[in-house]
């Protein structure tokens, strides 16, 4: 397919998808390439926003909102806090050998090529687009399934959070002899 034919067939949704994918992979690459950990975290936040756009395209609106609130809002702030707490702004990149970088590039590239090769060979079944319902990813339908069929995992998640919270407080506690921050 030549480029003008490609542009003629481009609907707004597909155009948005290509733009978002480009941005996602670009910011993902910047996470690897940036030397400063703070910049890495900021690019990661940009990646999460792009992923939320993908979720909206896939009809998962509630998940897109949760992704921004939980990931970009809570987890990444935690990361930034710890980085600034430990004063990790400077990283001794010179001591890192080029061999590690080449090994990472080869490993990641090979894995990606394997994935693409597998996806090209795979036949995905047709999915029924006539049963399309734009409300499917909203809170109402998601909550109905969550509180009916997935009640036990939901309760277990609350226990997991309690244990994680207690564990984090226990580990992060200041002990006698530690300096104040």
């Amino acid at each position: 397919m030549d480029f003008s034919g490609f542009l003629n067939n481009l609907t707004p949704a597909t155009g948005f998808f290509y733009f978002l994918s480009f941005l996602t992979i670009l910011t993902g690459l910047m996470v690897v390439l940036s030397k400063n950990p703070i910049h890495s975290v900021l690019y990661l936040i940009a990646t999460f926003f792009c992923l939320s756009g993908h979720y909206v395209l896939l009809n998962a609106q509630f998940l897109a909102a949760v992704n921004i609130i939980v990931y970009a809002g809570a987890i990444m702030v935690l990361f930034l806090f710890v980085i600034m707490f430990l004063n990790l702004k400077q990283e001794d990149e010179e001591s890192k050998t080029n061999l590690t970088k080449i090994a990472a590039m080869v490993t990641g590239g090979t894995l990606f090529l394997i994935f693409v090769a597998v996806f090209r060979k795979t036949q995905f079944g047709a999915f029924n687009a006539y049963s399309f319902d734009s409300q499917v990813g909203m809170v109402e339908s998601l909550g109905e399934v969550l509180y009916k069929d997935y009640l036990l995992p939901f309760e277990l998640a609350s226990i997991l959070f309690l244990v994680a919270m207690i564990g984090a407080v226990m580990l992060g506690r200041r002990e006698a002899g530690d300096r104040h921050f």
């Binding site: 992979i25 690897v32 993908h54 896939l58 970088k101 990472a104 990641g108 590239g109 693409v116 996806f119």
Partner: peptide, 18 residues
């Protein structure tokens, strides 16, 4: 979507190694 996800997965692996 699967290819985008695969690219992100590979990038994540590269981050963990480098």
């Amino acid at each position: 979507f699967l290819i985008v996800a695969a690219a992100l997965f590979s990038i994540g692996l590269a981050v963990m190694i480098t």
